[in-house]
Amino acid sequence: MGNPLSLDPLFNIGPVPITAPVVVTWAIIAGLALFSILATRRLRLLPGRTQTLLELIVTTLDGQIRDTMDRDPAPYRPLIGTIFLFVLVANWSSLIPGIEPPTAHIETDAALALIVFAATVGFGISRLGLKGYLATFAEPSWVMIPLNIVEQITRTFSLIVRLFGNMMSGVFVIGIVLSLAGLFVPIPLMALDLLTGAVQAYIFAILATVFIGAAVGDPPNRAKSPKEGTEQ
């Protein structure tokens, strides 16, 4: 098992070095794409087991987004849902022997956090306009502008560090226990790692939802409520 803090390229495509997390991510993308195409090929009004599972995932996702943002989940569903499914599958990919989860490398977590940051800014501007979005940094007072800017950066870093720390530590612990105790001893720790992976995927997706929701402002039915002011 390699050091998760350093990446060695497996091969190069021109000047671009291709590392293990990228290859595993490609495999995850291929697997999810293949599953999506096959599972949604024959959707019916009376669903089967697979369709029921897919609809359960989508409706649960919509419910979480609606509960968190109090808005129509349709514009945010692809991003939030993809982040959740990708992080979940990436975290659980550690169950396959010899595979390190991409989320155990800081580049993948940073890429996810950067996308969330960009989506936060993009949804905020599209919803409030550039001036309106920038004005949110001066709430509740212009004195808060530096703190709000720092908050934007730090919470992005917190996303990176939280996911990276949890997944990297899990890989480390399992590697250490496996090297010291033997083949079957790390199994309980791997089961715990499954739970940790699912929880981290949920936390990452929910935090992304909260950040985007805060950027787009109050929901339409609460926007003019004088007592509820700002929630960011």
Partner: peptide, 28 residues
């Protein structure tokens, strides 16, 4: 390089899942 590739990968995955998973299931 890995950071950039992973960013592109996730964006591609967002498009794939939006196109082949969320849209048909939501439509159904």
């Amino acid at each position: 390089w890995t950071l950039g590739l992973q960013t592109i990968n996730v964006l591609v995955l967002v498009w794939i899942l939006a196109r082949f998973l969320f849209r048909p299931v939501t439509q159904m």
